[in-house]
């Protein structure tokens, strides 16, 4: 119980700080001053306090936004934080479905608003997920085959015990490349594309509903970074207790900075360019899987 509360607490209340650091870093790269570190907290608080202006066509209302955040938090519980996950038997299929469900909620909310921009955004989100999600599950299944377990805790343990292997390195690299698009960062922020789609699925959103999506998004960033670092890059080994948690947060920060750096220096790709790029990444993940099958 303590682990669950602690994990949810860390995911909910620490992740905006990481977002803040990321924004500050991006501003540095752009030679701007950037927002204060705590700005994401104020953003969420401000949105929560606003009126919820809704599209007159909306059927689902704020429901998908809450469900998306809940699904992402639940997915976060499956990933080990510290030395064990909040749910010892975190299963990768459950994780994949929860993450997938969160993005379907986002698409539905966009279509629900009835805005044509949101419709386009939802379509792009769908296209992106078709090429990006396979990277995630092929990489995770590679780890499962290597560690002979579908549980995140066992997968995270595998490299600590057995050392690294070719397949894990390839899969980890593929996943790192996929995270950029999973998190809708440049050059893959195609579904939101503020310049052309005015935020895509979020075009019509405001107030607490929007706050939930923003918050969920920030949580997702941390969860994905955790999956990447915990399963594929578990070093340094041998840390326990609070030290392990701190080391993980630092690693998550490093991933966030890497993602932010790519985000800051790249222009947006067109959807077809992104799809072609991600076919390559999927192939790379599959190569990792083949290596795992032959035992490397």
């Amino acid at each position: 119980m303590f682990r669950i509360v602690a994990t949810i607490g860390i995911l909910l209340f620490l992740s905006p700080l990481i977002e803040g650091i990321l924004r500050k870093f991006k501003a540095l790269v752009h030679s701007r001053i950037g927002p204060p570190l705590l700005q994401p907290y104020w953003d969420i608080l401000k949105l929560l306090g606003k009126d919820d202006v809704r599209s007159p066509h909306a059927l689902l209302g704020p429901l998908p936004s809450w469900l998306a955040l809940a699904a992402l938090l639940a997915a976060g519980l499956l990933v080990p934080l510290g030395t064990a996950s909040a749910f010892a038997g975190g299963d990768l299929f459950l994780f994949l479905y929860l993450v997938g469900f969160a993005s379907v909620c986002t698409m539905l909310a966009g279509m629900d608003s009835g805005s044509p921009y949101a419709f386009l955004g939802a379509g792009r989100e769908m296209m992106t997920s078709f090429v990006v999600e396979p990277v995630l599950f092929v990489a995770l299944i590679t780890a499962a085959l290597k560690s002979h377990s579908f549980r995140f805790a066992d997968m995270a343990f595998f490299q600590q015990v057995s050392g690294t292997s070719v397949s894990m390195v390839i899969s980890g690299a593929a996943l790192l490349l996929a995270i950029q698009a999973q998190l809708s960062k440049l050059p893959f922020d195609i579904p939101e594309a503020e310049g052309e789609l005015m935020g895509g699925v979020f075009a019509e959103m405001s107030g607490p509903t929007f706050a939930m999506y923003r918050w969920g998004f920030i949580v997702k960033q941390v969860v994905f970074a955790l999956v990447l670092t915990q399963i594929f890059f578990p070093w340094p080994l041998g840390l326990t207790g609070l030290w392990a948690v701190i080391a993980q947060i630092v690693k998550v920060l490093l991933v966030a900075v890497a993602v932010g750096l790519v985000d800051a220096v790249n222009p947006r790709l067109r959807i077809d360019q992104a799809v072609v790029y991600y076919f390559g990444v999927v192939l790379m993940a599959l190569v990792g899987l083949v290596f795992a099958l032959v035992g490397a």
Partner: peptide
């Protein structure tokens, strides 16, 4: 979800 439910039930009438 998106095609069937989305096109039929969501958005504008």
């Amino acid at each position: 979800m998106v095609k069937y439910v989305g096109l039929a039930f969501l958005g504008q009438r």
